[in-house]
Design a protein around this nucleic acid. Structure first.
Length: 224
DNA sequence: GCATTAACCACAG
DNA sequence: CTGTGGTTAATGC
């Protein structure tokens, strides 16, 4: 049996749990490891758990009328899909591991009890939901008004800053997935990436991506 | 009209 | 899965 108490990977919310609540959680949660490419939970399937991403990187995605849409890239530590867990018993989107990943599944009824009985815990959950909602609003506004150069620049910057905290990183998506993320075709992604590379803004070989001219990338992102 | 943007198709590594 | 060229449609001077 794993020990939630001793787990160093806690979100802001869980650190507000009382010792006895922590113990209950230990008895009502399981940790599962996933390989790169594994499906963690699937759109349309029943779910009675909250999924907490302990380590790794995950994509949240849902089927659109034409093709798949990547909603968000999530880096540990973070909850995966609180909206789908509380809004509906059926998952409204899928989660897929982009790298080897470890996830804790917590019983939804238990989680609900924590929210009822522990205000600080609930507050932190609300904070997280609000932050996510705000970021989504920003992305939707960008996506509806920027051209693809701007969208891809924005996405690369975001990955570099928010996910990897480095100008050089292993790009976790295929070009086709990046297209699904910013709402464009894989061909357009390929062209933009080539252009950026020719203009010495980025460098990429295989999956290794390095941002060389961050200022220019920012300009492209802002001007759309 | 002419230029730009980007999607769709096809074919090749 | 990725890179490119041709084609086509929409939009904007």
């Amino acid at each position: 049996m794993h020990k939630c108490n001793e787990c160093s990977i806690k979100c802001a919310a869980a650190s507000n749990l009382h010792p006895e609540q922590m113990e209950v959680m230990e008895n009502n949660s399981v940790q599962v490891n996933f390989k790169k490419g594994d499906n963690i939970f699937r759109e349309g399937a029943l779910s009675l758990n909250i999924a907490f991403l302990k380590s790794g990187i995950v994509k949240l995605h849902m089927k659109g009328p034409a093709r798949e849409k990547i909603l968000r890239i999530v880096k540990a530590p973070s909850y995966l899909g609180l909206p789908t867990s509380f809004g509906d018993k059926i998952n409204q989107f899928s989660a897929t591991a982009l790298v080897d990943t470890s996830v804790c599944f917590i019983d939804i009824n238990l989680f609900r009890n924590f929210i009822y009985n522990n205000g600080k815990f609930a507050y932190e959950i609300i904070v997280e939901l609000c932050e996510n909602e705000l970021m989504d609003y920003k992305r939707y506004t960008s996506q509806s008004q920027k051209q693809i150069n701007g969208m891809i620049a924005e996405t690369l910057l975001c990955m570099s800053e928010k996910i990897f905290q480095d100008t050089k990183f292993n790009f976790p998506l295929t070009q086709s997935e990046l297209g699904d993320m910013v709402g464009t075709s894989r061909e357009s992604v390929s062209r933009v990436l080539s252009d950026f590379s020719n203009d010495k803004i980025i460098e990429f070989s295989g999956k290794e991506l390095k941002i060389i001219n961050k200022d220019l990338l920012k300009q492209i992102s802002e001007k759309g």
